[in-house]
Amino acid sequence: MGVAHPNEIRIEPGVAEAVSRLTVVPQRRYGIWVGTGLALLVAFLIIRAFASNPAFAWPTVVGYLLHPSVMRGLGNTLMLTAVIMILAIIVGTVIAIMRVSPSPVLRSFAGLYVWFFRGVPALIQLIFWFNLSLLIREVSLTIPFVGTLFSVRTNDFMTPFFSAVVALSLCEAGYMAEIIRAGIKSVPSGQAEAASALGMPYRMILKRITLPQAMRFVLPPTGNEAINLLKMTSLVTFIAVDDLFYSAQSIYARTFETIPLLIVVAFWYLAVVSIMSVGQHFLERHFGRSDTRRDPMTLRFLRNVISLRGMSR
């Protein structure tokens, strides 16, 4: 028995022919075929229902799609989302920094904030702020020996729009704080340590080292939050803010074309969410530049986010 030497192996013509005659037969996946069939059937039934049921009233839908009051409502919804998101990011960042602060008092305060504003349903917070005048009749600033500098009746400034902004910003800030905190925690501690050894003070380390690195972990969940918030703003209908949903409601309350107007509303929400998703994708790619691999940091961050997700919604 000789030992085969690698560079001496020769393939006989008969063997080569036998090898090339072989064909691969894919495994039969009957489950997938059945599933595909069912999915197609369901899709067909849905489309048929949409097309054939006159109650959908597609011409009415098209007629209202660009209706001036729907457009005004859409504008208000977009503005609410933008203003609330910006405020929520600012407040959330402050709360997140407090949550990682060395001071136990600041940490507890921030913890209580998140606990409260994430725990109480947004709708209840909204109605609470709207009715703030029941609790505090007027807001005034009085300095001893100087007198009252100003005094405003709560009802004068707690307009529906203003209370919507206050309520939803504070609520959303609770979620943003947790996202930003998870981002900060995902930056390896060695980064802050090295900065500290180079003589950088705490504030500078946060601003120049920790927060910028936290950004790329913070961005994807922030995009999701923005999309959630867009939809959450429909709650302001309850306190008569003229948003997208409210404007549709006020039309169908008059004309009883309920379903077509709900479709108009759904269309616009879907359209905006789609645009936001595309924007989110590009933003994430931009901030992922200095690291595109899935590294242990990313995994640690995912773990942090999952644990906070479990506690929230």
Binding site: P188, Q191, E193, A194, A197, G199, Q213, S290, D291
Partner: peptide
């Protein structure tokens, strides 16, 4: 502190 430089096992270069 800036007058004493420090080097670490894990380098700790600012990754961004």
């Amino acid at each position: 502190r800036a007058e004493t430089g420090m080097l670490f096992q894990s380098f700790n270069l600012f990754s961004h």
